[in-house]
Design a protein around this nucleic acid. Structure first.
Lengths: 159, 159
DNA sequence: TTCACTGCAAACGCTTTGCATATGG
DNA sequence: CCATATGCAAAGCGTTTGCAGTGAA
């Protein structure tokens, strides 16, 4: 019916082809992890994915989830983010455009944004420093308007 | 004589004032850590700082270094970077301009760069999303020319 | 049949914490 | 004097690894 189902199915096809191409086995566990990720929204971490699947009576181990997540990263079906030191976060990335994150240091809320100028920076810096830049991580840290007003600031935080 | 000594001394004053203002004790260990950091160059991590100080016959523990580093972060005398998941890296930041990092995913080498366009992104995104952006973290990940050639690529990795 | 994959649990590596001792104010 | 800091070692915590058993091809 909807985009979720369609995207999920296409992701499954991509994953299946990837496994085949690389001589990896197509196990139930791997597809179960993919399905679980693609039927949820927003960011997730390994532990909560593990617990969610345990609750749904899947027979799965953390090791298999770590393994599968590695494969999903390799075929770009998910992206990894390291906002703090611990607890790496992931999100599905199929038919989901590249974006960066703005994090409120007060309420820890995360907002996504896209700015094409980051691409220019990557290109220039790569050329000047002779690097083949593969990917990047840009996080902006600040105070969102709600938290700013609570702290007694004027009404325009961007000033 | 030179900037290093001067900077180191000024940093010591800043730290001393900070400790006083916050009711923290001025212990030998804390100043020893500061001195060690300010007399070295580039990035460092806790473990290597610990080992360096042990070799120099300081009587110091990891716990104290972690504690002191926390205080130095609080008064902006050092900055913290999380390039990979493990091993947080630090660098002194007093009279040291803001810059971002380019990390080689093969040899783990870190190169610094400055690109003024990041400032434009921060301003625009802050205005549009109504955030008061305080700071940012931009890491570019890629393959440096040495590693690229070892892997048999053509001579220009930026292409 | 075979060997990559799995579940489980132990090991890892950096960081934090607990506790007895030491010391700055 | 005594609350804060310290050294040391153990505990935490997310992640990785080792291994015996399992199942896809």
């Amino acid at each position: 019916m909807n985009t979720i189902t369609t995207t999920s199915n296409r992701a499954r096809q991509v994953f299946s082809a990837f496994l085949e191409q690389h001589g990896h086995r197509k196990t139930d566990e791997r597809f179960a992890v993919l399905k679980e990720i693609y039927s949820s929204h927003g960011h997730f971490d390994i532990e909560s994915l593990f617990l969610t699947m345990k609750n749904k009576k899947y027979r799965i181990s953390r090791a298999t989830i770590y393994n599968t997540v590695e494969l999903l990263l390799a075929c770009n079906l998910i992206r990894k983010h390291q906002f703090g030191k611990n607890l790496a976060q992931f999100e599905k990335s199929f038919e989901n455009r590249q974006h960066d994150h703005l994090i409120c240091t007060e309420c820890k809320n995360v907002v996504e944004f896209c700015d094409p100028r980051i691409q220019n920076i990557k290109t220039t810096v790569g050329e000047v420093l002779k690097f083949k830049v593969m990917h990047h991580s840009l996080n902006l840290y600040g105070i969102c308007i709600n938290c700013f007003e609570k702290k007694g600031g004027s009404t325009n935080p961007a000033k």
